[in-house]
């Protein structure tokens, strides 16, 4: 991902009030991590599994933080139990920032990723998760703000799937 796009994501998250982000490092959006790390507005929480990333974000959200769990696409499967258990069933708002690997617009799509990509939407829909697919930086701040408003209205996780220009 180009540096300008990484800055745009981080600026948009900050503008939307997201102030705690759990993460397992991944391959498409990773350029945003150093930017988040050096900005004291954010609490950046490295985790060992996307599963605990979701549950830690849930706990922090109940404690008053505006939270996101950042992961690569397969992390949605790793954390599906946690998304349903503490996110959906308990009703806790959080943003799922997902590197949408294996999707049609993924510029680095290979056999390593494609099976996750083609099943992602069905997986999210099976859990009742609202989502947006983001292919470029146009209107990014508005789209992230919309997702945060949606997660707060629903009191459930909402996913942003980053592909296209974000995967270069």
């Amino acid at each position: 991902m180009e540096a300008a796009l990484a800055e745009k994501i981080v600026g948009s998250l900050k503008a939307a009030g997201v102030n705690l982000i759990t993460f397992v490092p991944e391959t498409r959006l990773s350029e945003m991590l150093p930017l988040i790390e050096k900005d004291e507005f954010f609490k950046l929480v490295p985790v060992s599994s996307e599963a605990e990333g979701v549950s830690i974000a849930a706990g922090a959200a109940l404690g008053g933080k505006v939270c996101a769990a950042y992961m690569e696409g397969p992390g949605i499967w790793v954390s599906s139990y946690n998304i349903v258990t503490v996110g959906v069933r308990y009703g806790v708002p959080m943003l799922l920032i997902v590197g949408y690997v294996g999707s049609m617009a993924d510029k680095r799509n290979t056999f390593l990723y494609v099976e996750y990509g083609i099943k992602m939407v069905a997986q999210l829909e099976s859990m009742g998760i609202e989502y947006q697919i983001l292919r470029d930086g146009d209107g990014l701040e508005t789209k992230i703000a919309d997702a945060v408003r949606m997660m707060n209205a629903l009191k459930k996780p909402v996913a942003l799937l980053f592909t296209g220009e974000f995967t270069i």
Binding site: L20, E52, S55, I56, A57, A58, G59, A60, G63
Partner: peptide, 8 residues
Amino acid sequence: AVGMGLAI
């Protein structure tokens, strides 16, 4: 994990 999130 939820407890860790609350503690943070």
